[in-house]
Structure formats: C-alpha cells, structure tokens
Amino acid sequence: MNPKLTVITPNYNKGDAVIQCVQSVLNQSFEDWEFIFIDDGSTDGSFEKAIESADGDERCLFLKNTTGIKGGNASRNLGIEQSKSELIIFLDSDDLMMENCLMDRNRDFEANPDLDFIVYPMGIFNDTIGDSDFISNIPTSTPDLHRFLDRDVVWLISGPIWRKSTLESLGCFDLSLHSQQDYDLHVRALIVGFKYRYIHKSPDIFYRQNTESLPRKSSQSVDHFRQRFQMILRHADLLAGAEKLGKKERLLLARYILDIAQMMRWHTKTLGKNALKEALEMWKQTYDLGLVDKNKYGVGYSYLRFKHNMMYNRLGFLQRYLEKSFRKNLGDYIFSPVNFSCRVKLSDYARN
C-alpha cells in the first residue's frame, strides 16, 4: 500500500544540518509517509550523514542525482518521479519540520479534497528554532499572483503541500532555471488557476536563513539575469494564453524586465558595450509584446542608457537630478523592493 504523503529533499553540501533535517522527518507524529532524499554530488559527506541518521528506516529512500543535470530543481523532479503518494511536500536539507507538520497538513487536505494545493507560512531561524520570530510572509488584500509578479514572495518552497498530479500538470520544476525555481513554479500554478487555500497559522516548517547556497551566491550573474528574463517572457506568454494579461500584469512584467536590464550594468567589465546592448534588447521586448506603450518605451530606453553610463558616477549632482527625473517619468515602472518577504511576524497579520 502506497504512503499518503511524500517529503522530497534535495541536498548539496549542507554538512551536519542534514542530520537535523532527517531527524525532523523521522520525529513526525504522522507515520504514513515516505522520505526521498536526493544528493546532487555533495563532497562534504552530508549524503552519508543523512543515510546514517535515518538508521535504516525503510520509509527513507536515498538517491543520487544521476540525471546529468545539476541543481535542486533536477533533484526535486527526480523525487516527484520516484514518489508513490498522492501528496508532496518539499523540504530543503538544512530546514526543519515540527513534529505535527505532516499530520496537520494531511488532515487539512482530507478536509479540502477539491484543492490542488494548500499553503502555509514558514518560520525563519538562524541556528536554532526560536532565535528569530520572523515568518516567510503574511496575507494581504493584493492578489497573490500580483504580489509574486511584484517579487513580494508570498510563500517559500516548503509553504505548499501539493497534489502530485498538480505538479505533473505544471511540468514540475523548470530545468532551465538555476535560481527562482520555486518562484517560477508558484507563479505558473497561479496563472493556470489551480485551486488552493492559504492557511495562516503558526509555522510548521522552518527555513534556515544563515546558510549559503550556489543559487544565492550566483543570483546576480549574467546567466541568472538572462534566465530570469526568459522566465518573465514565458510568464507573459502564459498570462496571455490564460487571458490574464491585463494592465496590472503588463506593468509588473515590464517593471521586472526594466530592473533586470538596468542591473546588467554590473557586468560591463566582462561584457563591455554588450552589457548595454543586451539590456536595450531586453527592454525592446516589452514594447514588442505590448507591455508598454511607445512613450514609456522611449523613456525606459533613455533611462537604461543613463544607468549604464558610468560617467555620471563622477558627476553626483547631475546623476541625482537625472535619476529623480527618470523616476518621475517612469513612475510605477521603477521597482522598489518590498519589505514583506521574510521580514514579517505572525502577529503582523492582524494589521492587514
């Protein structure tokens, strides 16, 4: 008989943190689960430590990523393929579950059989649970899709519990992305219109914030900017196909592209003049796709040339004047980072 629930954990060089992660699964009050742990070529002995910490529990399956494609998304997709249950939760190998997590989430799904996924907040910690009282995010009156498109990440990788069939319908994780794979998956689920519910309660999974990962280290690289740009274009296409590409969605997509294009200036040393050229080509797509009108395209074009011209760094007064002028003319097309994601507390929900 197949288990009711699968926990899928990708791992790469998480050291001793994997021991706590595995133990948090073994300590679950709900026992009808399988645990699939996929290692992505670790060199620090963490794969062996994870196996040892499971102490031969037959519900645990330890695999190595042999797909030929490195990265957490390839490992998660392998886990989905290998899973035998109807419900799936993703747990990173340095994160932790509370002992009633699986019991509560399984019960919520049994009470809501019409849903495709259910979402919960994640707690944040550094070394031990309780050393931070922040959570991943809180509900607001703004539609979740709009918040994601505006990079106000409403939930993190372990926030949802999924139906396996829902993940398969989405095509699982996008293997072309080296970062923001979970962001992309969540946006696609919202565009498609899968039925879900957000349950705001005390966190039952905790995200370890003080560890480093390859995606975090390289998230500002040229390749990551290019991948992110292509991701936005795919989202635009999906929105258009779902007849959801309205005025607000166009603004948010164009804003994201403009922000990536202006950040390409960070790579002028390696790309030379091609950094500006590529940035302008990215921005041109917003006009070609009808995300901006001719006037906003022209202002954005000039803005990118300004941002990429390092000469203005030596002319502080002129730089500040032009920056202020462009921001006024571009208005909402200028991205201003939100303060919600991983910067709120459970009690903050009462004020929204």
Rank of each mutant, 00 (worst) to 15 (best):
Y196E: 04
R197D: 06
Y198A: 02
I199Q: 00
K201C: 01
S202R: 07
P203T: 07
P203S: 03
D204G: 01
I205A: 15
F206W: 10
F206P: 07
R208V: 02
R208N: 13
R208E: 07
Q209V: 11
N210Y: 04
T211A: 11
S213Y: 02
S213P: 02
L214D: 04
L214Q: 03
P215D: 08
P215V: 06
R216P: 02
K217Q: 06
K217P: 01
K217I: 08
S218P: 01
Q220I: 07
Q220L: 14
S221M: 09
S221Q: 04
V222A: 03
V222Y: 03
F225A: 07
R226I: 15
R226C: 12
Q227T: 11
Q227A: 14
F229N: 09
F229D: 12
I232P: 01
L233G: 01
R234C: 06
H235R: 11
H235I: 15
A236V: 09
A236Q: 11
L238W: 02
L238A: 13
L239K: 07
A240Y: 00
A242P: 00
K244G: 03
K244R: 13
K244S: 10
L245S: 07
L245Y: 05
K247R: 06
K247C: 12
K247G: 05
E249Q: 11
R250M: 06
R250K: 10
L251A: 00
L252C: 04
L253T: 05
L253I: 12
L253F: 07
A254L: 11
Y256D: 14
L258E: 12
I260G: 07
I260W: 07
A261K: 05
A261G: 09
Q262K: 03
Q262W: 00
Q262E: 15
M264K: 08
M264R: 09
W266K: 14
W266E: 13
W266A: 15
H267D: 08
T268H: 04
T268D: 05
T268V: 08
G272R: 02
G272C: 06
K273Y: 00
A275F: 00
A275W: 00
K277Y: 08
E278S: 04
A279D: 01
A279E: 06
L280N: 09
E281T: 15
M282E: 08
M282S: 09
M282A: 14
K284V: 05
T286E: 10
T286Q: 11
T286F: 07
Y287D: 11
Y287S: 14
D288F: 12
D288A: 15
G290Q: 10
G290H: 11
L291W: 11
V292G: 04
V292T: 13
